[in-house]
Computed example of a mutant assay.
Amino acid sequence: MRVLAAMSGGVDSAVAAARMVAAGHDVTGVHLALSKNPESYRSGARGCCSLEDSHDARRAADKLGIPFYVWDFAERFHADVVEDFVAEYAAGRTPNPCLRCNEKIKFAAVLDRGLQLGFDVVATGHYARLTRSSAGQVELRRAADPAKDQSYVLGVLDAHQLAHCAFPLGDTHKTDVRAEAAALGLGVAKKPDSHDICFIPDGDTAGFLTRQLGERVGEVVDTAGRVVGSHAGHHQFTVGQRRGLHLGVPADDGRPRFVLSIEPVQNRVTVGARENLAVGVIDAIRPILAVAAAPGRWRGHVQVRAHGAPMPATVEFSADALHVELDEPCEGIAPGQAAVVYADDRVVGSATISGTR
């Protein structure tokens, strides 16, 4: 089988490529250049997107004895991920750029080009498992290592894409992966994992958004409409946020207040007590199915954050929407986040949250 191994420069993708080589496949490594100026996205050994990472990926490929190429996706990444991230915050929503990168770049642009070049699958270092159903369909499942499970950020893949993917680390724990990398003599064996948004190297999301969108002074109000503070732009906030509100008027009961809603047109942020964050119903748009067909209304679990807990719920997919009724209320669910639906440990599909109540 001809395998295109996406090599970020981190330990996981390097070991994933090594396993495909050891399995006897015809493997070619590829590193994605996502910025015209790599150091503007991240500097240091963080495992994604820097010039240093591309060098680490090349050294790993050389060690494995496989061909290696760098593909320039800088313009598409900027348009589909960075600009989308800014536009979503401007609209009062909270996007996940890693999901968008998986959807638009790693498993759309790369997979499309790979298939055109005659490759059978794209292999990555994601922690998730692929199995086959009795009908022969490829199914996406949670990883064996629950602490590293990345099935949530892969929930944007459809059934066709999953059929051309390989996740060699799905059955492995992270400590074993590092030991394997060391045994193979890979220089990235002790390289730290990346956690921050790659195009915000200093971790200051609010500052990045302000540089993109500018300052726009607005009101912070309580649930009664009383002005309790001001802000320099609604894009600096997300539903459920507590820190950085700088409120001038304390709550009547003295308790902390949280962001309850964001109104982008009025540039207004509403704050209130924590219990007001609780929602029981989620509506979502742009559904993506990881299976051939989802049942109409059924019982499953829903996850709304990369490392969030799966929540039991009644769910219903339609042609253009997902409706979720949670068994127990959940706090801090923001429009723009992804809702990924599971049947036990199997991903059924995902959709973008458009509203809660």
Rank of each mutant, 00 (worst) to 15 (best):
T131M: 07
R242K: 15
T172Q: 13
P310E: 07
V121K: 11
H78C: 07
T131I: 14
V340G: 11
H307N: 12
R132Q: 15
Y89H: 15
Q212A: 15
E39G: 09
R46S: 10
A181P: 12
H246S: 12
G218N: 05
V122E: 01
R268L: 12
V281I: 12
E52D: 10
L326R: 08
S194R: 10
D26W: 05
A135I: 02
A306N: 12
P264I: 03
T172D: 04
E103L: 14
G272N: 07
V15W: 06
G214C: 08
A163N: 08
D345F: 00
H307I: 04
G229F: 11
H173R: 14
C330H: 14
T94I: 03
E325I: 11
R2E: 06
V15A: 03
E139V: 00
R211Y: 03
R226M: 10
T223R: 13
A61V: 06
D345G: 01
V348E: 13
D84Y: 13
V348L: 15
L162G: 04
A109D: 12
A293N: 08
V315K: 04
A18V: 09
C165M: 14
R59Q: 10
H307A: 11
K106N: 05
R211D: 14
T124R: 01
G229S: 04
T175M: 12
G24R: 10
S318V: 05
H234W: 01
D120T: 11
A251Y: 00
R216F: 08
L162Y: 12
P95Q: 13
I285L: 12
V217L: 10
H246E: 14
L99Y: 09
Y69G: 03
T223I: 13
D84G: 04
P38I: 02
L162H: 12
A159L: 09
T124W: 04
S43R: 15
I66T: 07
D149L: 09
R142Q: 14
R132K: 15
V347Y: 11
R257E: 11
G296C: 06
R305A: 10
L4E: 07
F68E: 05
F237A: 10
E75A: 15
M1G: 10
A16R: 07
A57R: 06
E331C: 10
V347R: 07
P201G: 03
V122C: 01
S354W: 01
V21N: 05
S151W: 06
A273T: 11
L34C: 02
K148F: 00
R299N: 11
L209W: 03
D84Q: 12
L277W: 09
W71M: 05
Y41P: 04
A91V: 01
A339P: 06
G233L: 08
